[in-house]
Simulated scan of single mutants.
Amino acid sequence: MGNVQSVHELMRYISKMNRENSVCQFSIPGKGTFTLVLQEEDDKEPSIQDDASANPALDQMMKESKKQYEKDLGHSTKGLLDSLSSEDYIHDES
């Protein structure tokens, strides 16, 4: 187990991980001890890109979303929640 003093040190630990060396324990002063476990990607699981390639509507939606993000037209979850008031929720009076 090593003490991590910088992001670069942590990335060095992570970059050395592989199938045989899949567990890394490290300590961050003032935070505590961490155990990092490498889980290999499952090649059988379809990626989001695979799903988009198979579904033209999803592909188009992702492209439009990316354009809006690049134009800073998106809204954060916090912004959405902050914009809601109690009147925006359905109230069951029963």
Results as ranks from 00 to 15, higher is better:
residue 6 S to E: 05
residue 16 K to Y: 09
residue 33 T to F: 04
residue 17 M to K: 04
residue 70 E to G: 05
residue 48 I to A: 06
residue 83 S to A: 02
residue 54 A to V: 07
residue 55 N to S: 07
residue 63 K to M: 10
residue 75 H to I: 13
residue 71 K to R: 15
residue 13 Y to E: 13
residue 76 S to M: 04
residue 52 A to Y: 04
residue 47 S to F: 05
residue 94 S to F: 00
residue 87 E to P: 01
residue 12 R to E: 15
residue 74 G to S: 11
residue 77 T to Q: 10
residue 59 D to E: 15
residue 71 K to M: 15
residue 62 M to W: 03
residue 10 L to I: 05
residue 29 P to L: 11
residue 45 E to C: 09
residue 56 P to W: 13
residue 91 H to I: 06
residue 35 T to L: 15
residue 70 E to M: 11
residue 65 S to C: 12
residue 29 P to K: 12
residue 89 Y to M: 07
residue 69 Y to I: 12
residue 26 F to A: 03
residue 54 A to L: 12
residue 1 M to P: 01
residue 45 E to I: 08
residue 6 S to F: 00
residue 44 K to T: 13
residue 69 Y to N: 14
residue 88 D to K: 00
residue 18 N to F: 04
residue 18 N to W: 05
residue 10 L to E: 08
residue 47 S to H: 02
residue 6 S to Y: 01
residue 31 K to E: 14
residue 83 S to P: 00
residue 69 Y to C: 09
residue 60 Q to V: 06
residue 68 Q to D: 15
residue 41 E to H: 06
residue 1 M to I: 03
residue 25 Q to K: 09
residue 28 I to D: 12
residue 44 K to Q: 15
residue 21 N to Y: 08
residue 35 T to H: 12
residue 74 G to C: 12
residue 30 G to R: 13
residue 14 I to K: 05
residue 38 L to F: 07
residue 92 D to A: 02
residue 38 L to C: 07
residue 30 G to A: 14
residue 3 N to H: 00
residue 74 G to K: 10
residue 41 E to V: 01
residue 65 S to V: 11
residue 56 P to S: 10
residue 4 V to I: 07
residue 61 M to H: 10
residue 15 S to R: 03
residue 24 C to V: 08
residue 6 S to H: 02
residue 66 K to R: 11
residue 53 S to T: 14
residue 56 P to I: 12
residue 3 N to K: 02
residue 26 F to V: 06
residue 15 S to H: 06
residue 13 Y to S: 04
residue 74 G to V: 09
residue 93 E to Y: 01
residue 25 Q to C: 08
residue 6 S to R: 03
residue 17 M to T: 03
residue 19 R to I: 10
residue 8 H to L: 00
residue 45 E to R: 13
residue 83 S to V: 02
residue 78 K to F: 08
residue 34 F to P: 01
residue 44 K to F: 12
residue 6 S to L: 02
residue 52 A to V: 03
residue 58 L to E: 07
residue 57 A to E: 15
residue 20 E to H: 02
residue 61 M to I: 11
residue 52 A to H: 03
residue 88 D to Q: 00
residue 43 D to H: 13
residue 61 M to A: 14
residue 1 M to W: 01
residue 44 K to P: 09
residue 75 H to M: 11
residue 12 R to Y: 10
residue 59 D to C: 14
residue 18 N to M: 06
residue 41 E to D: 07
residue 54 A to I: 08
residue 63 K to L: 12
residue 25 Q to G: 08
residue 3 N to Q: 00
residue 16 K to R: 14
residue 11 M to V: 06
residue 21 N to L: 08
residue 73 L to I: 12
residue 56 P to R: 07
residue 61 M to S: 10
residue 1 M to A: 01
residue 91 H to S: 11
residue 22 S to V: 07
residue 25 Q to T: 12
residue 26 F to Q: 05
residue 23 V to P: 00
residue 12 R to K: 11
residue 86 S to P: 00
residue 74 G to R: 12
residue 20 E to M: 05
residue 9 E to L: 07
residue 58 L to I: 05
residue 77 T to C: 03
residue 63 K to S: 13
residue 66 K to S: 13
residue 57 A to F: 09
residue 24 C to T: 06
residue 13 Y to Q: 10
residue 14 I to Q: 05
residue 5 Q to W: 00
residue 31 K to P: 02
residue 35 T to C: 13
residue 76 S to D: 07
residue 26 F to S: 04
residue 86 S to E: 07
residue 61 M to K: 09
residue 90 I to E: 10
